[in-house]
Every structure is written in structure tokens, then in C-alpha cells.
Design a protein around this nucleic acid. Sequence first.
DNA 1: CATGAATGAGAATTCATTCAT
DNA 2: CATGAATGAATTCTCATTCAT
Lengths: 184, 184, 184, 184
Amino acid sequence: MTRTRSEQAAWRREQLLDAALKVFADKGVDGATVKDLAQAAGVTPGLLYRYFDSKEAMVETLLSERGFLPRLRELLTARHDPRPAKEVLTELLEAFDRLLVSHADLMAVFFSAAQARAPLAKLVNEGQRLIGDFLAERVAAGELRAHDTGTAAKTLFATVAVNRRMGSPIDIAALVGLLFPEEG
Amino acid sequence: MTRTRSEQAAWRREQLLDAALKVFADKGVDGATVKDLAQAAGVTPGLLYRYFDSKEAMVETLLSERGFLPRLRELLTARHDPRPAKEVLTELLEAFDRLLVSHADLMAVFFSAAQARAPLAKLVNEGQRLIGDFLAERVAAGELRAHDTGTAAKTLFATVAVNRRMGSPIDIAALVGLLFPEEG
Amino acid sequence: MTRTRSEQAAWRREQLLDAALKVFADKGVDGATVKDLAQAAGVTPGLLYRYFDSKEAMVETLLSERGFLPRLRELLTARHDPRPAKEVLTELLEAFDRLLVSHADLMAVFFSAAQARAPLAKLVNEGQRLIGDFLAERVAAGELRAHDTGTAAKTLFATVAVNRRMGSPIDIAALVGLLFPEEG
Amino acid sequence: MTRTRSEQAAWRREQLLDAALKVFADKGVDGATVKDLAQAAGVTPGLLYRYFDSKEAMVETLLSERGFLPRLRELLTARHDPRPAKEVLTELLEAFDRLLVSHADLMAVFFSAAQARAPLAKLVNEGQRLIGDFLAERVAAGELRAHDTGTAAKTLFATVAVNRRMGSPIDIAALVGLLFPEEG
DNA sequence: CATGAATGAGAATTCATTCAT
DNA sequence: CATGAATGAATTCTCATTCAT
């Protein structure tokens, strides 16, 4: 149970970020005070400043260290799957949806923090691009009918994301069936 | 050119709301100070309190008085249109998109203010319901194939809204064509 | 007893500076807290910020607005006096000494504030130069023996200033008699 | 190369004081943080508290242990010198001036620390007294003309000290020549 | 109706100091 | 002996709000 000094420091840093993520998600970045953050972590406000330069620095750290862009990339690049397009696409969007669920707090921060605008835009762009690439590939392979893959990607991505965010998640199989009814 | 007392009061009230909407959209609700709001309206902070109880009250007023739910309802209830479903749907979504454009400032407030969560959810729900109703009607009329009209409505609404919000508006005709390719 | 708005503002500004001068002199610039300054003026800390940008700005204002360089210049430029040099010189140094007494608080600020280094150096330089000019003039007029007027000026200025500052003021007539014993 | 425990302790103590003196002189006592002091000594803040009770205690230690009053006394008591008064006096003031130069850091602390007021006053008083005694002795011996030796001592001491402090050191020979022109 | 001086509560941040390791 | 994580009290400054004019 005893920790070395540097272990303790690393652990505390993560603990502070964990607590901050929850508080930011709950109250918004502006709404959360440094006192709130400290209390949530069970420490005094001063300690935060041993680990981070400022409250804003904590937000930025969360956005960069806890961002799920790498994981999103990983998921959506699983395209050379031999299974039918609709099956793969459904699985892919479901994984994306699960990613959103497991990062619900971070999503809340994305929507409350001014600093999060750019990272969010990047996330959206890349997500749409990766889905678009997948669709284009399957169209090229003759598996899906020719269609506007860019629009389709935007549609799929936005629909999953918005409905998850609004707390009324969508039926992903139905969504895929809607866009590609006769296929597969 | 002279105004009666109550005309003057009404005019000033609107002027304060106009200014506040811009400032809130620009700096976020928490980021905007009462001084900012007053300056933008060319008055002193004290005056705001003759017209509104608090800064938060201004936000709530904007959300309720400037909310476009009534207008949205009006638009999306234009369903007894004799024209083909796809044509009407396209026009309807385009009107919705224009509505978002003309209320861009308010949309920003929706995303920055904690108080805006509930009104936003209401807006989304009602929008989706109205589109769903329209689709169901046309399916019932045999004009559109049978499909999950709820999912379709969520899809259409989310796609238009998200992409407008992200600053990369979608091609609505393409979107409609994507969902109802062979029809119409 | 009633004051107009702008009179009140001007009066309050001066009152805050008066209070600050005393507190700074008493506790030093770093030792004085904004709370101290406000309490001394009988107001709340926030009010200081309506009149000054920061605590440091108050110091700077004191240094520039309450500085006595102009008055010093005036005093020490009274050189075309027809009376004997020693008489004029004595009177001049006594006036300088009185100036120091009446600005004792400000002198304390000069010694406690980092920002005061440059203004203090300027004060000293100019004081020494003006006295030196006076002496040189009287030497040229044959009234005082030839001597190093620069050194004499530094000596006179430093001696009056230091001993006043240390709380053991010097006998100025004796000082003048010491430097110019047989003359006059 | 190995040190005994107490040697090591003594050495570390001096090292901490050396570092503190520089930092205090540079940033002022209030401006210097304990972290600054520790960093300058290449140790951690906690260690300072093994050697000193507080930051203020370090200032007091510097003022008492590094004070140059003993050395000043030594210098200025060199009065039974058989050489001419002016020669001895010049040498004496030059030694005093050098003392100030070599303790420039400490002088800065004298001017920045509230606690230093009393020690400084003591230094000045004693310095003036010792020079006064020397002058009185030489007057008694008939070597210098009768004059106000107290005023002369104050003059000499203040002039050397102020001008050194202001960064424009005085020509000491000229100063002595000014006060005792025809003598010696 | 409108002003702007003044308040009071609280925000972020700093820092001397302690203490378990 | 030495570290550095943690504290707690203070500090500067901000800002929504009130109210006499």
C-alpha cells in the first residue's frame, strides 16, 4: 500500500484529473471553482497548483490527455474487415457510441469549455472522414450502391453523436438499415 | 418621434436583450460580465436591474422570448402540402436550417448556458416528433415506403443541426436523396 | 456638504491616496495589504479598484502626483537672491528640510518601493545639480571662494536628507558654517 | 574532504545565509520567497527550517551575524594614528566606503527589511559618534581648528554613505578638503 | 428613467510552514 | 540530513447587485 514518492505524485496527478473531469462535466468549466475541484479530490486548493499551473491548464490537460481521438481513429480504421459492409458499419457505429458513453464527462467538457472548440471540431472532422473513407471503399468494391459517401458519413456520425449527447440514443441497426435498406 | 413611457420601456427592454444576446453568444454566459452587457447596450450596469432581476434572468428571458420553438412548430407543421414528400421535406429542412442560421447567437447561448439544457432538449424532441409525424403521414398515404420514421426523423434533424452548428452545413437535397433514393 | 458626483469621485480618489500614503509609509509597500489600504480609508477593498488598477498603480500615482520634485525645483531655483550666499543657502536648505518633513510619508514610500528607485535617483540628482549651480554662481560672482561645488552640493544635500530621514535632523546653520567658515 | 557532522551543519548554515543574502538583496525581503531562497542554495524549502525558524529569522541572522558594526568600530577607532588628521580621516572614510561596497548586498537588505530599521539607526549613530570622537580629539590636540565636530561627523558619514548608496560615490579627498581646506 | 459609487461575497492564486518518509 | 507533498491562511482582484442621487 505504500507508494514511492514519484508513484504518489503520479497517482495524485491522475486523481486530481479524475476529480476535475467529474466536476467540470457536472458544473461546466466556468461554473466549477478551484475549491470545488479540490474538494472533489479531497485536498486543499493550494495542492492543485503543485500539479497544474492553473484551472485552465487542468482543462487543457484533460482535453489532450484524456481525449479519445486516438481511440476513435483506431476504431474507425477497422475497415479491412471481410464481413458485409452493413455488419461492419453497425459494429463500428456501436463502438463509437460506446466510446461516447465511456467519455460522457469529457464530452460535457467539450461542450462547456471555450478551449474545447478546436479539439471538438478536429474530432468531428476526423470521425466523418474515416467513416466516409470506409463507405467509399465499399462502394468501390461494388458492395454498396453509389451514393454521396460524404453526406452519408456526416449523417451517420452526427446522428449517433447528437442522440447520445441528448440522452436519447438511437437504434444503430435501424439507422444503418435506413440508409442502406435493400443492400447487404 | 417621441415615445410614450411604456413604448420607451418596451423598446429599451428589447435593446438590452439584443445587446445581451450578442454578448452572451460571443463570450458565453459565464464569461460575459454585467458591465459587458451594459456597455454593449450603451447604458450603465444599474439600468439592467430596472428591466431584469439578474443576469440569469436575462438568459432565461432570451431563451423563452427569443426561442424559436413556436417558429419551428409553424414550419414543421406545414405538412398538408400537396407536393411530393421529398420536395416538401427538403424545403422543410432547409427552412429549419435557415432558422438555425438566423438564430446562431441564440444557439451559442444554448450551448454555453446551464439553464439552456432543458429548453434545448425540448426543442430537439419536438423537432424530431414533428418531422416523424410528417414522415408517418406520408408513409400512411403510401407515398413513402414503410420505414422507421422515428429513426429517420432523428437522423434528419440531428444531421442538419450538428453540421450547421459545426460550421460545415450539409447539402440537404443530398441528405434527403440519401434517405429516400428511389422514391418521389 | 452635498457634493456632486464628480466632486465626490475626485474627493474619494484623494482620500484613498491620503490613506494609502500613510499605510505605505507605515508598513511598506509590500507589507501593506489592499485590505489595510481599504480599512484605512474606511471603504471596502473592491472600491479601490474603481479608482486604481492595482495596488502598484496606487504607489505609482503617489510617486508621480505627490512627488515634490516640482516644489524642490521651485525652492532651489530661488538663486537670484541679492542677499549673502550663506544666508540664502541656509534658507534654501531649511526649506528643503521642511519639504522633507512635510513629505515624510512619501519619503518612506521612496525607500520601501522598488518602483521608487528611479524617481528617487532623479530627485537626488536634480537636487544636487540645483544646489551645485547656486554655489557655482556665487563662486563666479566672487562671493564664495573657489571650491569643488559639485562635491559641496552632494555634501549639503546628502547631509540634510540623511539626517532628516534618520530622525536626527542636522543644524543647518552649523552645516553651512562648517563648509564656509570664514566667508560671508 | 569528509566533514564531521557539526562541520557539515555549520557549512550548510553559512551556505544558506550566503544564498539568502544575495536573494534578499536582489528581490527584497518581501519579494523573496522561501522557494527562491532554497533554489538559490540548491536545496529544498523544507531544509531551511532545520537551520532557521522562519524566513524572518534568516533576515535577523544576516543582520546580526553579517552586520559590519564590529568591523566599522574597528576601522573608525584607528584614531591614535600619528599621521596628520586629514590623511587619517581620508583613509578612514575610504575604508568606510570600501566597507559599504563589500557589504552592498547587506545594505540592500537594510533598506528593504522592516526589521532592519533599528540596526541601521544603530550603525549610523555609532559611525557618526566614532568619527566625531576622532575629530574632537584632533581639535583638542590643536591640529584642527575648533568646529562643530558633531555636525562635521554627521556630514562626512552621511555624504559618503548616501552617495555610495545612490551609485554615485563621492571623491573622498575632495570631501575632506572641502571641510578642512587650509588645515593639515 | 438613468447613473455610477459602493458593497460583499467569493474567485484564483501564492506562499510560509509542517511533517511523513 | 534532506526531501517534497500537503496545508491553511492570506492576498490580490472580480463582479453581480444595491441604492442614493
